[in-house]
Structure formats: C-alpha cells, structure tokens
Design a protein around this nucleic acid. Sequence first.
DNA 1: GTCTATAATAGGATAGAC
DNA 2: GTCTATCCTATTATAGAC
Lengths: 205, 205
Amino acid sequence: MSSVSEPKSERIPAAQRREQILDAAAEVFGERGYAGTTTDQVAQAAGISQPYVVRMFGSKENLFCELLLRARERLETRLRNALTRPEVKALSAAERKAFLGRAYVDLIGEGGIVLPLMQGFLLGHDPVIGKYAREGFLVIYRLLRDEGGFSQDEVRDFLAGGMLINTLLTLQMTGLYDTDDTARELLGCSFGEKIDIVLNAGSAS
Amino acid sequence: MSSVSEPKSERIPAAQRREQILDAAAEVFGERGYAGTTTDQVAQAAGISQPYVVRMFGSKENLFCELLLRARERLETRLRNALTRPEVKALSAAERKAFLGRAYVDLIGEGGIVLPLMQGFLLGHDPVIGKYAREGFLVIYRLLRDEGGFSQDEVRDFLAGGMLINTLLTLQMTGLYDTDDTARELLGCSFGEKIDIVLNAGSAS
DNA sequence: GTCTATAATAGGATAGAC
DNA sequence: GTCTATCCTATTATAGAC
C-alpha cells in the first residue's frame, strides 16, 4: 500500500459498474421488493455510495425498470435456447413442459432474474412499473405459446407452476425444509429432483 | 345541523371501527403491498386520522399481521365450507378441484382476502411477517390435502393455479382485457367462465 | 373514541469537490 | 468516475386535548 487511506472503491468503467449495480439491485429488490428496498441498500450491496447509484440510473424507479428489462431478456433467451434444442423438438408437449420446468429451476439457481420479475408482478398499480411488468409477462406468455408449440392451457399450466415456485421462494419456504414436514413435502413436489438447487441458492450470493 | 362544524367521523364502538380499518387496510395493502402502503393511506380509506390507525393497532406491522390472520381465517372457512358440502364429497378429485377453483374466484370477487395474502407471501424476508405468511400458506396446504382428500400433486396444482390467478390480479392484467388480445386469452383460460367476476371487481370497492 | 400537533427519523435526490 | 455533505419531503409514532 503506497498511501495511508485507500479509496472506497476502485475506479472502473461505467458500463462495468452498471452491471455490478444491476447485480446488487437484483439481489436486494428480489428479496425485499421495490418499495421495501432503499437505494442505500443497493449501494452497500454493490460496494459504492448511495448517491452514485442514483446518479448512474437517474432514479430508483428507473433502476428497477432497467432491472426488469434485463431480467426479462435473460429469461426470454434462456427459454428460447431450451426450446430450440433439436432433441427438444421431438418431445411431446408434456415432456417439453417438464424440460422447460427444469430449465427454469436452473435459472433460479443462478439467481438475479426470477425474483425481481416476481416482485415486479406485484406492482400492477404503479403507472410506470406496472406497464413494464405486464408487458414482460405477456412477452413470456407469447413466447411459450408461439415458439413452444403449446396450447393456451398448457402455457397456463406452465406459468401457474412457475408462479407457485416463485411464491415459495419469496416466502422463503426453503428455510423450513429441514424443520417442517409439510414444507418439505410441498417443496419436494413443487421443485422435483431439482430441489437441491434452490436449497443451496440461499447460501450463494 | 345544530353546530357549525361537524366531527370528522362519527363516534362508533372500537370493535366496529377496527373492522372498518381492517377493510380499508385490506384494500390498500392488497393493491400496494406492505412497504408501499402508508398508514395515512389506510386512514384516508377508512375515513379517520392517521394517528388513530396506529393507536388502534399499535403499529403498521401489527396491523398487517392482523390483516393476514383475518384473511387466512376467512379463506380457510370458505374452503372448508366448500369441501364439506354433501354434493361435493361425491365428486372426483378433478371435479372437486374445479369446484374449489370456482369458490376461490367467488372469494376474489368479494375482495379483501386474496390480495393481502398474496402481498404477505412476498415478505418472506421479514422476520415477523414472514413467519405469519409461511404459516398461513402451510395451513392452507394442509387443509386441502387432509380435508380435501387430494394428493400432494393435486394440492400443488391447485395452489399453482391460485398463484397464477393472484399474480394476474396484482399485475392488474384485467385492465388490458378490452385492449390486448393476448391478455384476454390468458385471462380467459386462467379464470374460465367466472372471468366476469374479476373484470367487475375493479369497479367495486 | 378521535383529533391536532409534532417529534424523530429515514430516504431519494442534488450540488459540488476531487 | 466517485465521494461527502446536505436538502427536502414523507412517514411512523407519540403526546395530549377534547
């Protein structure tokens, strides 16, 4: 160390910092929701100062919208990748649904995508964010229906399963897995063989 | 009028006022979520002053917990009533599930129960409310499994459908019914013949 | 049983230095 | 590119009158 006091955070390119902030925002907003999160919590998670977060995105609202957009694009990409794999095209609708479900749980394991989206879904009343959230939901619906070759009812059932999974995650039901028989049963039949992924997701960042 | 200025609100028994406040809280919390709601918004919806709301329930947190408790009890009662009707016992599991689904949508139409519960489900991170919310979810799960005569997977599917419905409501997707084809399709296959109930729910209080 | 006034604090956003 | 200092408003909660 050549100087007595080190800078609080390294000087890095804006684009990279931006991603860091979005990563931090995904975690905090995903857990605490939009209104329940402060820009200072995001800043601390990103290792920078609160005003810098606001400076970079203009406002808390805008930060959340950009987060929603990024999350939706990633989900879209992932689902599309899964659907276009050659071996998937040969499967029955039910098998494709199960395959997609596993891909969805894998995505959850990576974090930062599904929970912010779910938090956005609860903001229909917000004139700005609500519009983003509804649009994102419909984009996913259409993707599954049109590119997945599913019927309306099949898409509905897939989305329903996803919403249950999302709800169990935001409830933090996974924390009861070891101590509550009912919770274990419910988690077991909701996540299937991939249950380990979400049980471990809590310990990762 | 015998006096020049009338009192802002009538003097009524505490128990009755309490219910009024809970009704108002159900509406506001249900739409805006826990963190997104101020005690003043609840007070205004109830037609009283903000300090009185706090005075009556001790804290915003406690008000929300009491709301969750009331909502869960009402849902429990409703499901139990539906399940114990003699003509229901004779139905197949699939038919019972459909019957319960319709009962659930009827409950939504009455308002004040389902949305606050859903908002609670997003608060797993909260040390106090999270515990309430998880417990409430598990109570409903056990009720369906044990008193409904459903298998684990059947209960899961029922809950999944419920969570999709709840999500569409918090998203306020119903507002797009008349203008967006995709939204209409999704709402149609999610709510079935009872779609009118939720489309009209927006105009009711 | 209900209100007004207000304390105490938190939180988003801005200004300006470095 | 990043921080410190700070403004301003919103919000929960308390005190005390009626």
